[in-house]
Simulated assay, not measured.
Amino acid sequence: MKAIQMREPGGPDVLSLVDLPRPELDTETDVLVRLEAAGVNPVDTKIRSRGTLVPQTLTAVLGCDGAGVVEAVGAGVTRFKPGDAVWFCYGGLGGPRGNYAEYAVVDEQVAQPKPASLDFVQAAAAPLVLITAWEALYDRAGLHQGQQALIHAGAGGVGHVAIQLARLAGARVAATVSGPEKASFVHELGAEYAINYKEESLLHCLSDWTGGRGVDVAFDTVGPEVFRQTIPAMAVYGDLVTILDPAGDLDLKEARNRNLRISLELMLTPQLGGLPEALAHQGEILRRCGELFDDGKLTIHVAETFPLEQAAAAHRRLEAGGATGKLVLTIG
């Protein structure tokens, strides 16, 4: 099969198109998927530049997100049959199992039926960002109706679905953006307030928006400096969730004074730790999101697509920054 492989860490040019053996079913609950598309995520570029997350592997087929058609199933599979369309988030952390390829093997508990309202490109764009946003807002922060929530980088891959999930929970939403076009985009998704972080003070804007009390929930998808700037903009007893390392030299005195609950979100933990119950929970998140897509309550925005052989170009585009929504590789 055709696949994109990295043989060593480095820049986008370490990604090369190769021929690899088609993966085999290893267990009775495995599903072989002929991939139609694969999502491109920041974790892919980090693994490419820094090295694999799976120990003792150097080469890797990247790509956590996939969507395609079931080609074969193990003897114990009960939920799928050949010909079924599926989407999932699994693989891509090291070794040969990833989704920048024509075929992938996943356990049936990880895969879910593709939402009928999404094509394969849209379905491949969605899983990782949906799971990340769901776990951060619902599982970590316990976001609920009537709260005021801040979503950083609201026009980004995770941010634009986080806005929608926050609104579905009944929260009022503010989002940070880099300019007027992205402000219009997040308003269309349901954000009540768009803050241009290049021109406006986060603290002053949120103080005005919340009547001085601060936001109940904040979701950081950017990094340490943004995390630090968000602390004084939080309400007392608020929830601050980040998907990044907030840095070891962080002064948490103000967070402690506000009695904040700080949570870390890494949706890759179930894969890295081999946690079947947690993987099943992520599969359930996708199932429920699939229903939301088909009910017209959730959308995914694909900014640009690239053919499989142009994976390096997709990485360059992602690392350049500024994309609205997601990038996707098309396969076949």
Rank of each mutant, 00 (worst) to 15 (best):
K2M: 04
I4L: 06
R7T: 08
D13T: 05
L15A: 00
V18F: 10
L20K: 09
L20M: 13
L25Q: 12
L25K: 14
D26A: 15
D26G: 14
D26P: 10
E28Y: 13
T29A: 08
L32F: 11
G39E: 04
T45I: 09
T45V: 05
S49N: 08
R50G: 01
R50C: 07
R50H: 13
G51S: 09
L53G: 02
L53T: 09
L58H: 14
G63T: 08
C64G: 03
D65W: 04
G66P: 12
A67F: 11
V70G: 07
R79D: 12
F80H: 06
G83Q: 09
A85E: 15
W87M: 12
W87P: 04
G95M: 07
R97N: 12
N99V: 03
Y100R: 03
A101D: 01
V105I: 08
E108Q: 15
E108S: 08
Q109P: 11
K114F: 05
P115D: 00
A116W: 10
V121G: 08
Q122G: 15
Q122I: 11
A124C: 13
L128H: 09
V129S: 09
L130R: 04
I131D: 01
A133P: 08
A133G: 13
A136G: 14
Y138Q: 15
G142F: 11
H144G: 14
L150M: 11
H152A: 10
A155I: 05
G156V: 01
H160Y: 07
Q164W: 03
Q164I: 04
L165T: 05
V173H: 05
A175F: 01
T176H: 02
V177M: 02
E181Q: 15
E181Y: 05
A183S: 11
L189G: 02
A194C: 00
A194I: 06
Y197E: 01
C205N: 07
L206T: 10
S207E: 10
D208V: 12
G212I: 09
G212S: 06
D216P: 12
T221V: 15
P224D: 01
E225C: 03
T230D: 06
I231W: 04
P232I: 06
M234H: 07
I243D: 00
L244D: 11
D245L: 08
D251K: 14
E254C: 10
A255C: 13
A255Q: 10
R256T: 14
R258E: 09
E265W: 02
L266I: 10
Q271F: 12
E277Y: 05
E277A: 15
A278G: 07
L279P: 07
A280T: 14
E284R: 15
R288Q: 15
R288W: 08
C289V: 11
L292G: 06
D294H: 14
L298G: 07
T299Y: 01
I300G: 04
H301L: 04
T305Y: 10
T305E: 01
P307E: 02
L308W: 03
E309Y: 12
A313S: 15
R316V: 03
R317L: 04
E319W: 06
A320C: 10
G321F: 09
G322T: 11
A323R: 11
V328C: 05
L329C: 10
L329Q: 00
T330H: 04
T330R: 04
G332V: 09
